[in-house]
Design a protein around this nucleic acid. Structure first.
Lengths: 347, 347
DNA sequence: TGGCTCATTTAAAACGTTATAAATCCCATC
DNA sequence: GATGGGATTTATAACGTTTTAAATGAGCCA
């Protein structure tokens, strides 16, 4: 452990642009191997050496070269998130990513995004990532009961966390929102306000959470013994104008619904607009209870009752679970079901 | 150039998990160097060899190892996008990223996102990326006239494209929206509808495009010789409720504005809500012309006139410009100013 | 002192690619 | 029949890290 004079230190620093293990080795007099070990806190390194190496590393601002680490270890230190085009609206995707990034802070992991250009579960991207080891873990939303992406990942033992559940018998990590409870509670509130014919706007049928929402809705409806309606023509993924037009048409017909459980803020706004085309007023002729994922709706339309889904928290939990899964941690609970905050939260 | 029998081929394939240059070399009988050259279409390789190597590579699904390439060349094949928390609303950030990803398709570039957790231009993230060569190029929004990030990047010759301009004398690549024209046109429309006291809701003053908007607004106002008002208490980054409350308060006072140029859809909705608190109706007592970046507003509130800003296109152009900048292409125009589509586009 | 163990440290190889420099080969030319 | 040169191909050395196996040194007992 040579005590390097200042001049030598700066000379060594100047010669090499970016500090590497070699730089620290030259500076301390240790071998590269020792430096590597000291920095990764390997047990066989003496406390004194470890301390000295850490000091020098901090001083010269050493940062391990990601490419070299990745090449050697096979670990990429990359988490990949698959982004669906439907996540564009109202910051859905960004909130999730923000939460993810929060969980990944102070870890070596980087977040790379792969937007899905084609519609539906993009199995090709997943296969590509798995086959070529492009990431250490995968995150995606909008699962289907027998989602081919989940099957592929399970078969290959590739770490991932879904936002949404499946119906495979093999359990896998997920962080999901309890959409049954949401729909059940939302519908009960509508009925509680005296509405006798609630309608629910569902996501496309193929997705798992569509079934959960439907189930919650039907449970509430049957318990109360009221009528109900489920539109076939529209879903939460439809363009705003289609939902609005549908509501407008429907309002003009007989036996129009008098309550709406909306799975998203946009569909709630579209419903209000469509209904108002026929002079129907929110709070008077009908009510809405909607899922709230941003601050927008409840501020713009305080008459819409909302139940909150915290997507940033969801993202953060997904990150946490994925890191545990990658680390092979068996103690962490890998399946998280987030309960709706049904206690009328204020923004 | 040995013609390898099938059995040997499969044997070689089996031995090594992931195909590498070595695999192709063994399969074709060429040296690793030759294979590398053939795949990168180096001029000194014979057409015949090149063809054969490409064939085999395609057949076994060879993909170059990113880590090895990065280690050797120093190029990361990564584009980093800095995400501001204010980009959360209405899919602003996601649209941009979608466009970016579109430009990066069929290139080796991956898109990594770094959300900004602290408020304001986060120079630390930029310094970290530059110093440690974490990416080949950088993308960010919400520039300030003398944005420290731009200065740092210019000083280091690091490739980047901003969404927004600066006032540095050294030119740098940007893709911006002509916010002067937007504000000018929006205000003229308000005046054209007979409004005599327009108001504009601006982004925080420190950002360059705030000045552009202000300038456009003032030009229109002065040309027409009408009154105007510019609120000091609120800006486009404010939470929805603050804008709504402000509008509500302002509507109650004397000489309330009768026209609003809104730089975002959310502020437009908040304005409508705030005004309606005092029984003022859009289209009757006042008008709004707003910037439209999603399908939401114009469908929900057809009475709000909108002028479109295509953020997906913006992202795509930014990607295109950045790739050209990285490639050192001098012919590509590095400064793009997107004109508002003032011709009353339909969604 | 020699031999043994345990605690540290080290040298060398490897990950998969590209760059540099050197080696072939083929053919035309003297 | 050598000589030179252009066209191809190749061996070797890196890039910065981790891993494997080997070396060094100190302490201890015989």
């Amino acid at each position: 452990m040579a005590d390097t004079p200042k001049s030598l230190a700066s000379e060594i620093m100047l010669k090499s642009g970016k500090p590497t293990l070699r730089t620290i080795a030259d500076l301390t007099g240790f071998a590269v191997t020792t430096v590597s070990r000291a920095l990764s806190n390997a047990p066989q390194i003496s406390a004194e050496t470890r301390k000295r190496v850490h000091e020098v590393a901090a001083e010269i601002g050493y940062l391990p070269d990601r490419a070299a680490q990745r090449l050697k270890t096979g670990r990429t230190n990359v988490i990949c998130v698959l982004l669906d085009p439907h996540e564009e609206i109202l910051g859905y995707g960004i909130s999730l990513m923000h939460g993810l990034a929060k969980a990944l802070r102070d870890t070596p992991y980087h977040l790379i995004v792969m937007p899905n250009f084609i519609n539906g579960a993009n199995i090709d991207a997943v296969r590509h990532i798995v086959r070529n080891g492009m990431a250490d873990g995968l995150i995606f939303s909008r699962t289907e009961p027998f989602d081919p992406r989940v099957r592929l990942l399970l078969e290959n033992g590739f770490p991932f966390v879904t936002h949404g559940r499946t119906e495979f018998t093999t359990p896998h990590p997920y962080v999901d929102y309890d959409n049954f409870s949401f729909a059940y509670e939302a519908t009960k509130r509508l009925i509680g306000r005296g509405r006798r014919k609630p309608m629910i706007i569902l996501p496309p049928k193929r997705m798992t959470f569509s079934q959960h929402l439907l189930h919650g809705f039907m449970t509430a409806v049957r318990e109360a013994g009221v009528g109900y309606e489920i539109p076939d023509e529209i879903n939460l993924d439809c363009p705003v104008e289609e939902i609005r037009d549908f509501m407008s048409r429907r309002a003009a017909q007989r036996d129009a619904p008098d309550g709406f459980a909306c799975g998203g803020e946009v569909s709630a706004l579209a419903t209000i607009t469509g209904m108002s085309d026929h002079g129907l007023t929110l709070g008077l002729e009908y009510d809405i209870v909607a899922k709230r994922t941003s601050k927008l709706l409840s501020q713009i339309q305080p008459k819409v009752e909302t139940i909150y889904e915290d997507l940033t928290d969801t993202g953060e939990q997904m990150g946490r679970v994925l890191l545990a899964r990658i680390a092979g941690d068996e103690t962490t609970e890998m399946q998280v079901l987030l309960k709706p905050q049904i206690s009328f939260p204020t923004v």
